[in-house]
Amino acid sequence: MKPYLSIEQLTQRFPDGSGGQLTVFENATFGVEKGEFVVILGHSGCGKSTIMNILAGLADPTSGSVIMDGQEVKGPSLDRGVVFQNYSLLPWLTTLKNVTFGVRARHPEWTKAQIDEHATKFLAMVGLEGDVIHRKPSQLSGGMRQRVSIARAFANHPKLLLLDEPFGALDALTRGTIQDELLKIWGQMEQTVFMITHDIDEAILLADRILLMTNGPHARVAESVEITIPRPRSRTEIVEHPNYYAIRNHLVQFLGKRSKELAGQPATPGQPNAPETVRIDTTQTNDDPADTRPALKAVNS
């Protein structure tokens, strides 16, 4: 049984500028289940955005395919909503119009009143209400712009939501607020999410599963780490969970050392380059009968 979103033997090569070829990644193979929140972590330049652009249908891979819900991804679609790294709001439209822009594309048959109402609802969901929604993006703070961009994507109910370092440009406080909002909305809508980040703590807070990429060129999705911390999670409580530091250490180790050691190995031709599943759960070896923490279940199953 194929996963909901199946990335199959994806290879991307670019001309390297001196006549040769740069292989960003080769035969990358992994899957994402319906409703899952998957985060991809890796060093700058390893090819995360390249993967995301292919998933969005904005770029074509050199070879391999992406299959979503039984259908091959060919070109962009309203079923795959994208929150771009730099928000990509249209600066000549107001906040509300930026969201209705998307809603109108999704529901061309709706009346203006319906479209406005729907957009206003999703803006309110990310905490933008009142006068603010009639301002232009240039009059909003970075965090507000990011929220507009998230509202635009969520309002279209895409089957898959793609987020490219959505909080990269935000300060820690704003970042925290929007992460919480994202979690809340995700919880309500059972959206499948694929997100890129550089921030380990953010990844642990949000993800069901973290994909770890080795350094490029010839980058690989080397590991798939399950986050064995129950939901709902909160920033302050997860650090107290016994699995938290074990997982965090594993991720830090990978990014700090192993991503380099594993780098640069060309794939065996024709063989899928699939990640190894890693499950870190210290609570299972914990035989203290006084421990009344809820039993953990594997999040993917």
Partner: peptide, 12 residues
């Protein structure tokens, strides 16, 4: 390019 991509992802 980003704005064009917004149009593309909205299937305009």
């Amino acid at each position: 390019e980003d704005w064009i991509n917004v149009a593309r992802t909205h299937e305009l």
